[in-house]
């Protein structure tokens, strides 16, 4: 008997939720949903593989702009843009893994990959013909097989379906021998190679898979905000995404979901004080590191064995 199956009830329980929310709250809920894949990709590399790569915002921005530009300039339907958004996000992930393959680790890797994200932001600003430069670009209202996604309520159901799918696939990946390989690399890379694990291949795979999932999150972001500007992909954004995986729990899929919700909802408390976001993310990160270094997921894991994830230590 697999108690974990009850987790699949959660999306069903969530179905009527937006009906009780006002339009703004629905928008916040959608934002929390789209940050689940964004956090999943980030956590796969940082939490499961154990490499400190900060290029997540690059994949996020690429996914958003690929989707937005294809829709606005080439009339490609949104759901079709998900594929190139994932592919380009994945390719960017594979490229970002190159320094790691060359043996760059820790803060050297962090800085190099961080520069990748900043380089992409510079590209969005400079490539005005496609992106509208620093003024940004409008993203057309998407259409899903004849159904116009013009309200947050409608987008919610599409997002929920996408998120459930991505969580399910990543869960499978992490419980397979791939997940065991990631954990072995995280724990002791040399020992992993000594046990016949082709570590380079798995590092590229984790980065590429992470980049692809984040790219899809970017495409969701594009239609959720309806307007893309380079400032959405700056260092504050990186701090937000880092807060998601730290608060949730490094290496935990459940934690990523919790982190996405908390980090999205918490700044709403300070909604009338613009610019407080960074403060909230920073505070959340500090509090979690001090009191719950394994993240909120570790509380759940301690509360009941059903929450214990096979390849995450709570």
């Amino acid at each position: 008997m697999n108690l974990r199956r009850i987790f699949w009830l959660l999306p069903i329980v969530l179905l009527p939720l937006p009906l009780w929310l006002n339009q703004y709250q629905q928008y916040v809920l959608n934002t929390a949903l789209l940050y689940v894949p964004v956090g999943i990709g980030f956590n796969l590399v940082v939490g499961n593989l154990g490499l400190l790569a900060f290029s997540n915002v690059a994949y996020f921005g690429l996914g958003a702009y690929v989707s937005g530009v294809l829709m606005a300039q080439f009339d490609v339907p949104w759901w079709i843009t998900l594929l190139p958004a994932a592919l380009i996000g994945g390719a960017a992930g594979a490229i970002a893994s190159i320094p790691a393959l060359r043996g760059v680790r820790l803060f050297y890797l962090a800085i190099m990959t961080l520069a990748f994200g900043e380089l992409m932001r510079w590209t969005y600003i400079r490539w005005e013909a496609l992106t509208g430069g620093s003024m940004g670009m409008a993203v057309p209202v998407p259409n899903l097989l004849g159904w116009t996604l013009d309200t947050d309520l409608r987008r919610f159901y599409v997002f929920l379906a996408l998120v459930v799918m991505l969580v399910a696939i990543t869960d499978r990946l992490l419980r397979s021998r791939f997940g065991r390989a990631f954990m072995a690399i995280k724990d002791n890379e040399i020992a992993a190679a000594a046990m016949g694990i082709p570590t380079d291949r798995y590092i590229v795979l984790a980065f590429a898979w992470g980049g692809a999932v984040v790219g899809i999150g970017g495409a969701m972001f594009a239609i959720s905000v309806g307007h893309l500007t380079p400032v959405s992909f700056d260092l504050t954004e990186l701090l937000r995404q880092f807060a998601i995986i730290m608060v949730g729990g490094l290496g935990s899929l459940t934690g990523t979901i919790i982190g996405a919700v908390i980090v999205t909802v918490a700044p709403q408390v300070f909604i009338s004080f613009p610019g407080f976001d960074e403060l909230v993310f920073g505070l959340l990160i500090i509090l979690v590191i001090l009191f719950l270094p394994r993240g909120l997921a570790s509380l759940l894991a301690r509360a009941h064995p059903v929450f214990v994830e096979r390849y995450y230590r709570g």
Binding site: R180, A181, M183, D187, N188, A192, G196
Partner: peptide
């Protein structure tokens, strides 16, 4: 060259990783 954070059994099982 062990996996320090893993249990004895997890370490042993990783020895057979390539067999699947």
């Amino acid at each position: 060259d062990l996996f320090p954070e893993m249990s004895v059994e997890e370490n042993l099982r990783l020895g057979a990783w390539t067999r699947g």
